[in-house]
């Protein structure tokens, strides 16, 4: 976090109430949050705590019903129109009628890049996620982990400074997940992007983040924000260190304090 450069995301008193058939549901309540450039912020909490909703508000996929939120100093809608962020969904959401390289090219076609620039960015981002050689494959010919890597490549090809990731590795097995976590950290380190990462895994949150936002449900709110003391370079075995375990314990305490497990 740096005080000088403008915050990438700044929310104050943010609230969002869904109108459902069973009456209003308060998905977010009184969220105050500032995310600085280059941070890796994880949102963790049980299902229904509004962590995905918060990410979707940042992405302008939901409109808040109270409070204010700014992305790069402008409204989320303006930021979206300016293509300020890349978004990685829970599933890869690749288009099955496009090859991997055409999938990565999709956002580039929409913003109207030249063929040469598209080709250059496809090559670079597929290398970044270790998918070189799979350009001509269709998504359904690849494993789940490779598909999710392709969808990360698609978000990276966009080349926005902010990367929003909604449980991107939730559906993958632990071995693949460890591997992708490592690659993601490496990528963050090299590109200096700001990453907002939603997860429900405590080790994943602690391993990846510079800051962990602990949330709790009914209504969805922030109960704790934990600054990580871990170094920027993190080998996988850092997860056995006492420092790591201490942070994980604090996250767990935060989740418990939010009465997340009451039912």
């Amino acid at each position: 976090m740096s005080g000088q450069s403008p915050a990438v995301v700044s929310a104050s008193k943010l609230g969002l109430t869904f109108q459902t058939n069973d009456g209003p549901v308060q998905a977010l309540s009184n969220v105050d949050l500032t995310i600085g450039k280059g941070e890796f912020v994880s949102f963790i909490g049980p299902s229904g705590c509004g962590k995905t909703t918060l990410l979707r508000v940042i992405a302008d996929l939901e409109k808040p019903t109270s409070g204010t939120i700014l992305v790069n100093g402008i409204s989320p809608e303006q930021a979206r129109e300016k293509r300020a962020y890349g978004y990685v969904f829970q599933a890869a959401a690749l288009f099955p009628w496009r090859t991997i390289e055409r999938n990565v090219a999709l956002p580039l076609e929409i913003i109207g890049l030249s063929q040469a620039e598209q080709a250059e960015r496809i090559k670079r981002t597929l290398e970044l996620v270790n998918l070189s050689g799979f350009e001509k494959k269709y998504p359904w010919q690849l494993s789940g982990g490779m598909q999710q890597r392709a969808s990360i490549a698609r978000a990276l090809a966009f080349d926005a400074d902010l990367l929003l990731m909604d449980e991107p590795f939730g559906a993958l097995d632990e071995i693949v997940r460890d591997h992708l976590n490592e690659q993601l950290l490496d990528l963050w380190d090299r590109t200096n992007k700001t990453i907002c990462f939603v997860t429900h895994s405590i080790p994943e949150a602690v391993y990846l983040s510079t800051r962990i936002v602990v949330m709790s449900p009914r209504p969805g709110r922030v109960t704790d924000i934990i600054e990580s003391t871990l170094p920027r370079k993190r080998p996988l075995d850092i997860r056995e260190t006492p420092e790591f375990l201490a942070i994980a314990a604090r996250v767990r305490d935060g989740l418990r304090a939010g009465h997340s497990y009451e039912d």
């Binding site: 992405a59 302008d60 996929l61 979206r80 129109e81 300016k82 293509r83 962020y85 890349g86 978004y87 969904f89 829970q90 599933a91 959401a93 288009f95 009628w97 999709l106 956002p107 076609e109 929409i110 913003i111 966009f158």
Partner: peptide
């Protein structure tokens, strides 16, 4: 799917690009 349409929204894709690149192929 909703996710695919949200994806196009995050690209600030207009009606016609979304129709041509996502909705028509999915409707085939």
């Amino acid at each position: 799917g909703h996710m695919e349409r949200d994806l196009m929204r995050t690209y600030a894709s207009g009606y016609w690009p979304t129709l041509l690149k996502l909705r028509l192929p999915a409707a085939m």
